[in-house]
Simulated scan of single mutants.
Amino acid sequence: MTDPASPARPVAAAIRYLSIIVGCACLLLAAVCFAIACQVFIQTGVFAQSYVMVGLISAALGLLALTLSRVWK
C-alpha cells in the first residue's frame, strides 16, 4: 500500500494534468487542420492531403494522451 504523503503522488497528478492539457491541445490542432483542409477543398477543389495527415496524427496523439490521463493512477 502506498503512503498518501509519498512524493510520487504529486508527480502522478502533474503527469495526469499535463497529459490532459496535451491531449486537448492536440485535438484542437486536429480540428484546426481539418477546418483548413475543408476550406482549401471548398475554395480550390484540391484535396489538402498534408493538412489532413497532420490532423489525423494530431487526433491520434490527442486521444492517446487523454487515454493516458484516464488510466494513470
Rank of each mutant, 00 (worst) to 15 (best):
M1C: 09
T2D: 15
T2L: 15
P4T: 01
A5V: 05
S6D: 15
P7T: 05
P7L: 09
A8M: 12
A8T: 06
R9N: 13
V11A: 15
V11T: 12
A12E: 10
A14G: 05
I15L: 15
Y17N: 15
Y17T: 15
Y17W: 08
L18C: 13
S19G: 05
S19E: 15
I21Y: 08
V22N: 14
V22A: 15
G23K: 04
C24W: 07
C24Q: 11
A25Y: 05
C26P: 03
C26D: 14
L27E: 12
L27R: 07
L27M: 14
L28C: 07
L28V: 09
A30N: 12
A31N: 07
V32D: 03
A35L: 08
A35N: 01
A37S: 11
A37Y: 01
C38V: 04
C38A: 14
C38D: 13
Q39C: 07
V40C: 05
F41C: 01
F41R: 00
F41Q: 10
I42S: 12
I42P: 00
Q43T: 14
T44Y: 02
T44C: 08
T44G: 10
T44F: 01
G45W: 01
G45K: 01
G45L: 06
A48V: 02
Q49I: 11
S50T: 06
Y51G: 08
V52W: 02
V52E: 14
V52M: 14
V52I: 14
M53F: 02
V54T: 11
V54K: 04
G55D: 14
G55Y: 03
G55L: 08
L56S: 14
I57W: 00
I57G: 11
S58A: 13
A59P: 07
A60P: 00
A60T: 09
L61M: 05
L61Q: 05
L61A: 14
L61W: 02
L61V: 10
G62W: 03
L63C: 07
L63K: 00
A65T: 04
A65G: 01
T67W: 09
L68M: 08
L68Y: 03
L68W: 03
R70D: 11
V71S: 09
V71W: 06
W72S: 10
K73F: 13
K73G: 11
